[in-house]
């Protein structure tokens, strides 16, 4: 990397979704509460509602929308979302079309598929559970064309 490119990259990091995002890629996050609603016929369905008055035991859905607002395709896109300490990832909930989904159990230093994760607990290695997850990330398998949009989501329960 040339010095010039490095400086540009650093500016990109520092501006973090600010001015530079205007002519590149946008990422917006939103959070909803997932509730079970009873319908007139007695059956129930899940709905996403505003995340007001979040309580222990509530299920939250985090959604990230990525949009390429530049005139060129964006490549090697990786979206990373931390899973806060008070949250427990809901197994199988992460979604993202055309994306490989990986998890971290070490604070985001390394990532692997769900079934490949292991943790060391009191000196004994064991398969990781969803409670161990610290981050989830989506690795886009294709490029994102100019003007195109993609969505990722996952659910987590409030402890």
């Amino acid at each position: 990397m040339s010095v010039q490119k490095f400086v540009l990259a650093m500016i990109g990091v520092l501006l973090a979704g600010g001015a530079l995002a205007q002519d590149s890629v946008e990422l917006t996050s939103s959070v909803y509460k997932q509730v079970l609603v009873e319908k007139d016929d007695g059956s129930t369905e899940t709905q996403l509602v505003a995340a007001d008055n979040v309580l222990p035991g509530d299920r939250l859905v985090f959604r990230n929308t990525i949009r390429n607002i530049s005139a060129e395709p964006a490549e090697s896109i990786v979206i990373t979302n931390p899973i806060e300490e008070e949250l427990v990832y809901v197994a199988g909930s992460a979604e993202g079309e055309g994306m490989a989904i990986e998890f971290s159990v070490d604070g985001g230093q390394s990532f692997a598929a769900a079934n490949a994760l292991r943790v060391v607990d009191n000196g004994i290695e064991r398969p990781a559970t969803t409670k161990d997850y610290t981050h989830v990330r989506w690795v886009m398998q294709t490029e994102l064309a100019a003007g195109a949009e993609g969505t990722t989501s996952f659910a987590a329960d409030v402890e």
């Binding site: 490119k5 540009l8 990259a9 990109g12 990091v13 501006l15 973090a16 979704g17 530079l20 995002a21 590149s24 890629v25 990422l27 996050s29 959070v31 985090f62 990230n64 990525i66 530049s70 060129e72 964006a74 490549e75 090697s76 896109i77 990786v78 979206i79 990373t80 979302n81 931390p82 806060e84 994102l144």
Partner: peptide, 16 residues
């Protein structure tokens, strides 16, 4: 909750 995205655009790796 703060997510981030890294991407290559015009040959430059950027994280926002």
């Amino acid at each position: 909750n703060t997510a981030s995205v890294s991407f290559d655009l015009g040959g430059t790796r950027t994280t926002i």
